[in-house]
Every structure is written in structure tokens, then in C-alpha cells.
Simulated scan of single mutants.
Amino acid sequence: MKQLLSPVALCQSPYKQKFAIPRQPNLVPAAIGRLLMQDDCNRDECLRGLEQFSHLWLIWGFHQNSEQGWKPTVRPPRLGGNTRIGVFASRATFRPNGLAMSVVKLHRVLKEGKQHIVEVSGLDLLDGTPIYDIKPYVPYSDALPDALGGYAQDAPTPMPMKVLEAAQPQWQAAQQRYPEFAQLAEQVLAQDPRPAYQREPEREYGVQLHDLDLRWQVIDYCNCVTAVVPLPPAP
């Protein structure tokens, strides 16, 4: 049986491109986003009582992957990017139905004019991601401390970061524009977002956070920020 899904909300996120988005939610607590409620769900009644909960489940879609299809096996980065496992034994983005789920922290529910907004943090969603459902996180049933995580049992070791002297003025300017930028950048780079097959010494990488291009190199297993450049306005 086929079922047509319509978004209940759209996500505003600091992540403007897929590269460097954390591979799991809550790895970057400084990533703050807003869920803009849509159509019939943009009403007080739908959100009544939501603020009783500290965390939420988001059911969402990989909206930029649909045309690329999917494969029955994938190569998880945690296994070095070479070992193949079944798609259902992974959280890969290319899936039969293109759906994902994330636990995020609820900050507040607000209203701007006629727009109802749910503000959350710890998200791992691209800007513009469609949200198909929002559910409360219930600790007594959703938190399972004895669960086994297979090849992803342990959290990855975070990488250190430093800002090179030449980039300090740009770094300070970025913090003036976005007070949480330093935490956001450090937490994003701590996950080592480089592809497993592309970790060349001293190669420069870049990621778009908000409207800034963060550039860095990995030197002696340390993320060294080389520049923070404003992006040109969108056409």
C-alpha cells in the first residue's frame, strides 16, 4: 500500500550543504534550528502540550537524494568506507523510502506573526529538510541503556581544533555575527567530517555554516582553521 506524505514542518538549519553534517544527532549540541510548521499543522492546537517534553523525535526525509536511488548494500564510514553491509543495518542516506529519524532537544515553541515555530538543537538536518512527523521523546521507553550498537557501539573520539593566526580576525568577526559559531564549528570539525576515502594530509576542506565558508586543514591530527569567509549572496 502506497501512502503520500506531506511535510508537517520545514527545517531552518545552519547546515547549508550535506558535507560535514554530523552523522548522528546530538553530536553537535550547538547546532540550533527552527521547525516552521506548515499548512494545517501551523496552528496552536497541534503544538499544545509539546513544551512538557525536553526532547523530540523528528521523522524527516532525505530530500536531496530521491533522484539518485538506493542500493541494497552501503559502506559505513565507521567501517572505513570499504566494508559493505546491508542498507537496513546502517543509517545511510540512500534508502528505499528516503526517511530518517533524529532525537533533538526542544528549546521553545514560539509564534512570529502567523508562523508557529519549534526551536530545537543538536539537529543533523540540512537546511530546507521536510519534517514528516514530530513525536515526544519518552525516556522510560525510548532510552535503553543495555542496547547493543554493533559496529557503532562507541562514540567516535573527537578531534581537536585550533584557529591559525592568519584566520583569527575572520574567526572573531564570525563570532560577532553568530555568538554560537565557535562552538558550532568546533563540534562539527570534532567529528572529522572528511570522507573515509579522502583524508589526504594538509588538504584544505570547506563547509558552509550559516552564510559562512569555514576552511580548514588537518595537520598532525588537529583541525586547523585557515579561513572563515562570507559566502556571496544567493542569486
Rank of each mutant, 00 (worst) to 15 (best):
Q3T: 15
P7G: 01
S13K: 08
K16A: 07
K18Y: 09
A20T: 09
R23Q: 15
P25I: 13
N26Y: 14
I32Y: 08
L35Y: 04
L36K: 01
M37Q: 00
D44F: 13
E45N: 15
C46T: 15
L47V: 08
R48Q: 08
S54H: 05
L56M: 04
F62P: 00
H63F: 09
S66K: 12
G69M: 07
P72A: 03
T73P: 12
P76C: 06
P77D: 13
G81I: 00
T83W: 15
R84F: 01
F94N: 09
N97I: 09
L99N: 10
M101V: 15
M101P: 15
V103G: 13
V109F: 08
E112G: 07
E112A: 09
V118E: 05
E119K: 04
V120Y: 03
S121V: 06
G122A: 08
D124H: 07
T129F: 05
T129L: 02
Y132P: 10
Y132T: 11
P136W: 13
P139D: 10
P139G: 08
D142S: 10
G150Y: 11
Q153L: 11
A155W: 14
A155Y: 15
P156L: 08
T157F: 11
P158L: 13
K162R: 13
E165G: 13
A167Q: 06
P169G: 14
P169K: 13
Q170R: 06
W171H: 06
W171N: 10
Q172K: 08
A173N: 13
R177L: 04
Y178A: 02
A182D: 15
A182G: 07
Q183H: 12
E186A: 11
E186F: 10
A190H: 10
P193F: 01
Y197W: 02
R199Q: 11
R199E: 12
P201V: 01
G206A: 05
D211V: 00
D211N: 04
L212N: 01
L214M: 07
Y221E: 13
C222K: 05
N223I: 00
V225R: 01
V225K: 02
T226E: 01
A227M: 01
A227N: 11
A227L: 05
